[in-house]
Design a protein around this nucleic acid. Structure first.
Lengths: 199, 199
DNA sequence: TTATAATTGTGACCAGGTCATAAATTTGGA
DNA sequence: TCCAAATTTATGACCTGGTCACAATTATAA
């Protein structure tokens, strides 16, 4: 049996193309041409018409976007959005649990996302260019449902030299869902930093 | 006044180059050549030696990472490669620490990757369609360098009804790097789990 | 049937590389 | 001081994933 797959009309193809690329920005024109069963030229025309830049531009846009948010805290990636930060004292961040973070069946957040949010907040609190997680004790109190906003709050409650004790709690709708104590070590400068940095 | 800026020695240049690119991955070789006052060829040689890919690769890596920092982590049920699994008894998995898992500066694995490996192994051990992490106590014993192979070993050392006690250790080169105790709950069916999951 | 729209192909060019090889330059040691 | 080795540069062929302008071909609808 032969199925005659009707190709898209121009309008439809362009609409679907736009959607596809916004969902999936890393296709090449060639791949798109195959998918839509048109020539590469047509795809280029379509892209031009839709004002969609080439693959490398798109990639760069995603990377830059990602990079600037990620870089906000001197390279230190904080999972979630940082709402408040007084280094060495307290910090707060927010993370919305989306589709990609939940277990397929239960629709609750995977543990490591919550851990990552809490852990990165703890690290952000340490007043140093670098910090290492020494030890952690934590308790998962409740599962977190898809779509919920998790607010992490952390504070340094003790410090001795380069050793920090940090308490972090995660709340959803003012309900505690995770609580933990971190011990972190700050690491000063890498010793071999003598030469003048150019720019 | 003219300051004669001594150019870097090969070793220093490479070290600084590596740092610069991990901080600032969007430089072209040409820009780098200008900054370091060497030729483009030298920069390419250096990059080759350091195993740093070209600009477009780096951009792609950042973009992909941004697109799925934790998504990549998530797709798999078990983080790392499962080597052995006797449900309810013991399990072993292996994870190679790659570029995307390390802190830019220190080149050591981010805590949540190690946590994720251990946590997912613990969950895999529980004999149930679904398990939730109840509480965890864990200790990060040593940082893990880029490129290392982390072997996770877990065993169920106690069980009572739907409550499991699991011990997990992570080793690198036979050195313990993380150790933790999990308490997990297996969940038969969550009440809103009527529909069959496709796939 | 034919005018118009839509699609496809072509060739020149570009950035930012790879890879292999060779030439030039710097440097350390006897 | 001179030479060999280390280091740095240069060169040319090739690659991907494009841009742009223009021409040729193929629908499609009146």
């Amino acid at each position: 049996m032969v199925i005659l797959m009707a190709r898209y009309s121009k309008e439809n193809r362009r609409r679907v193309l736009g959607e596809a690329l916004s969902k999936h920005p890393f296709y090449t024109d060639e791949e798109l041409a195959e998918q839509f069963e048109v020539s590469v030229s047509t795809i280029r025309l379509d892209r031009g018409e839709l004002g969609i830049p080439e693959l490398r531009e798109r990639t760069r846009a995603v990377a830059q976007g990602a990079y600037s948010t990620l870089k906000s805290l001197d390279q230190q990636e904080v999972i979630g959005e940082l709402l408040e930060l007084v280094i060495g004292e307290r910090a707060r961040s927010e993370l919305v649990i989306d589709e990609s973070m939940v277990l397929a069946k239960a629709r609750v957040a995977r543990g490591h996302y919550l851990f990552a949010q809490a852990n990165s907040l703890a690290i952000a609190l340490v007043d140093a260019p670098m910090a290492l997680t020494g030890s952690v004790e934590l308790k998962f109190i409740q599962p977190v449902q898809l779509g919920k906003v998790v607010v992490a709050e952390g504070c340094v409650f003790r410090r001795h030299r380069n050793k920090y004790w940090v308490k972090v709690t995660l709340n959803v709708d003012s309900q505690e869902v995770l609580r933990g104590n971190w011990i972190l070590f700050s690491i000063g400068e890498l010793e071999d930093e003598r030469e003048t940095e150019m720019e």
